[in-house]
């Protein structure tokens, strides 16, 4: 029986850190309650009932007890441990990067089905090794959208004129692009990154999809040039909006 003092939900293990001698403070991204910090008591002991359940990137079903300051884990059952991801350094680096993004962009205790589903879908794609690079880009774009900072790619951010189909410089500070006539308006900006015409075409398509709010199945093929260009843009923009460099980027670059 579930009482007010406990709640049962599904979640993904985003992060954990030592908490006292044998406990772990686990950052759990739950379907129904958002991101919650939970204490897993004695999780570092070899015979702990939680030790395998609270491993990073696990999808788990948990029973959580409400505490005065911090909630604590009562039960933890693994639904999917994403073993393929964990046995491949490239996939692991991408999985951990995704989870770090969620830790940084999503507030505690705010349920967010869209991000939960996006992260789960991304981990499933990494696990099945299906369109890995496309999946990572789609996940990051969804996260930016849900965070309310999706940039403007259709029109000039200054004069609202439609942008020409060509390469443009995107500025993170203004969250968009200045057309050729307005190029000197924001001369003091320095977080600029050139986005190629093809990449901009793709970003406009995504912007239209997002504005339409219709269900969308991402199956676009992106060539290597576009992928590299989008990754470059996303890295700069995410770092700017999060106001910090993701810690896992160094490892991501090392193994990819």
């Amino acid at each position: 029986m579930v009482s007010n003092k406990t709640y049962v939900t599904e979640g993904l293990i985003l992060n954990h850190r030592d908490f006292g001698e044998t406990d772990l403070l686990v950052t759990l991204f739950t379907k129904s309650f958002g991101k919650v910090p939970v204490v897993a008591r004695r999780a570092k002991m070899p015979n702990s009932k939680f030790s395998s359940g609270v491993q990073l990137l696990n999808k788990v079903k948990v029973s959580i007890g409400r505490g005065r300051n911090l909630d604590h884990l009562n039960e933890c059952e693994i639904i999917d441990s994403f073993q393929t991801i964990k046995s491949n350094l490239t996939l692991l680096s991408k999985g951990l990067f995704s989870s770090e993004l969620v830790v940084n962009f999503i507030q505690d205790r705010t349920p967010n089905f869209q991000v939960f589903n996006a992260l789960e879908q991304n981990l499933n794609n990494l696990e099945t090794q299906k369109n890995i690079d496309q999946s990572m880009i789609w996940f990051q774009l969804q996260l930016i959208n849900v965070s309310g900072v999706f940039p403007e790619f259709m029109v000039c951010i200054n004069c609202n004129e439609n942008l020409k189909r060509k390469d443009h410089v995107f500025y993170s500070e203004i969250g968009g692009i200045n057309c050729d006539n307005c190029i000197n308006v924001n001369a003091d900006l320095y977080h600029g990154v050139t986005i190629l015409e093809d990449s901009l075409g793709f970003l406009r398509h995504i912007q239209r999809v997002i504005r339409s709010s219709k269900p969308y199945f991402f199956d676009k093929y992106l060539d290597d040039n576009t992928l590299n260009d989008l990754n470059k843009f996303l890295r700069i923009y995410l770092t700017y909006t999060a106001e910090r460099q993701m810690k896992s980027i160094k490892f991501l670059d090392l193994v990819n």
Partner: peptide, 10 residues
């Protein structure tokens, strides 16, 4: 140990 999420690399 390598811990990308805590910025610890090889």
């Amino acid at each position: 140990a390598i811990s990308p999420i805590n910025g610890i690399g090889p």
